[in-house]
Computed example of a mutant assay.
Amino acid sequence: MSDLAAIVRKSRTESVVESLRAEGVYDSSRRIEPYDDDSTAVPVLDAPTEAEIDDLVETHLPPRERGLGDLLKARGTADDVVDAAPSSWAVIGSVVLVDFGDVSNDETIDRPAREAIGDALLELHGEADTVVARGGIAGTRRDPSGEVVAGVGETETIHTEHGTRYALDLAEVMFSPGNKVERARMGEVVESGERVFDMFAGIGYFALPMARAGASVTAAEIDPVSYRWLVENAQLNGVTENVRAVLGDCRTVETTADRIVMGYYEAHAYLESALDALVPDGIVHLHEATPEPRFPERPVERLRTAAAAAGRTVDVLDTRQVKTHSAGVLHGVVDARVD
């Protein structure tokens, strides 16, 4: 039955799709479409036996044969707008997050053009109901800026990755789709019972996967809004016993850790506090925004210098690029054991 579809609540669409993929019954050749005001129709190849769905029906779902450009052209959108449309975007729960780039000197993607592109993106992604144009991230509290360009305007959502659920409001807190692999990885490298200090926890980006893996996580967050979501997400994922959420500057937190996560681009400035909390032979994950030619040498040298000042030595375990930060600058991570 090629028109078979699983009916699920909109808030659960993303997590159910992930489950259907794992089960091997998700039909990626057809589009997810709204089913009614509260539900979506997710195309499946066969009746799922593991994923939790509300109903299984036969309903026509159009094929995924058109990209954004094709859809804009079919809608009669001007060629210059079609040419300027973004080539990539991210679906975060029920929100499409799209980067229109720097348009300060480019009138091609003005407000009406963004709205046209946003409407087309909603047609492409039936599970979403709002499109947000990504803005910048400002200050040590990493406050986002952005604007709703299409849809109902609901920026609060629940996003699911590898079983971890993140409740958030994209108008209030940042969420980087490019960190997806790194978030999942932290839940894989940590051991059950391990003591972790997440110095820049945000809404629980790294803390939640590690807590779900059985680690005992002290998660510090200086921004009250992100802290509120961190506490809510610990409850949402059933890991309140594994997460000690602390509102305040991570440098004032008293803790002892086997592993420290420093998921902030300027985290090197906090290395003294990190090493004070890290046990001998503990592991640190140091994030940094680094000019490409200077990675991994610069963050490694910064770590070695800080360790030497504390009378300690560093054994680099791994270095990797997470994503591009900006032109010529990458977001990289250094994993190291410090004696």
Rank of each mutant, 00 (worst) to 15 (best):
A133R: 13
I222K: 11
D110K: 06
V149I: 15
R142M: 08
R141V: 05
V149W: 00
V149R: 08
S326A: 15
A51V: 12
A277V: 13
V181A: 14
D99F: 07
D36Q: 03
T77R: 11
R320A: 14
I53A: 12
D276Y: 03
E266A: 15
H159S: 06
Y270D: 15
E154H: 06
E301I: 00
V98H: 07
I222G: 12
T108N: 08
G178F: 05
L56M: 04
T164W: 01
R185E: 06
A327W: 08
S28C: 01
P224C: 05
E115A: 12
A116W: 00
G93Y: 12
S145E: 01
S273A: 15
G311C: 11
I7P: 05
A171L: 04
R185Q: 11
R185C: 08
R312K: 14
E156M: 01
T240N: 03
R185N: 11
L61Y: 01
V333R: 06
R134K: 15
D38W: 02
S145C: 00
G263Y: 13
I117S: 06
C250L: 01
E123Q: 15
P144R: 08
A90H: 06
R30M: 07
S28W: 04
G178D: 13
R30D: 01
I137N: 01
E254G: 10
D276F: 03
L97G: 06
R141S: 10
G153T: 02
K73V: 14
V334G: 05
D102T: 09
V338H: 01
V96K: 01
T252S: 14
H268K: 11
L71I: 04
N179K: 09
A234L: 07
I283E: 13
I109R: 15
R304M: 07
M210G: 12
E232I: 00
S104A: 12
V338L: 02
I7R: 04
N242S: 14
A167W: 02
S145T: 14
G214H: 06
R165W: 14
E254Y: 00
I203S: 05
H287I: 08
A274P: 01
I203L: 15
S15N: 00
I117C: 06
I53P: 09
V17Q: 12
Y227I: 02
G101V: 12
I158Y: 07
I203Y: 07
R141A: 11
L330N: 07
L20Y: 12
D339R: 07
L124D: 06
L317M: 15
P63S: 08
S87N: 10
D318I: 00
E14G: 13
L168D: 03
T305M: 09
L56N: 01
I53Q: 03
A5F: 04
R9S: 11
G136Y: 02
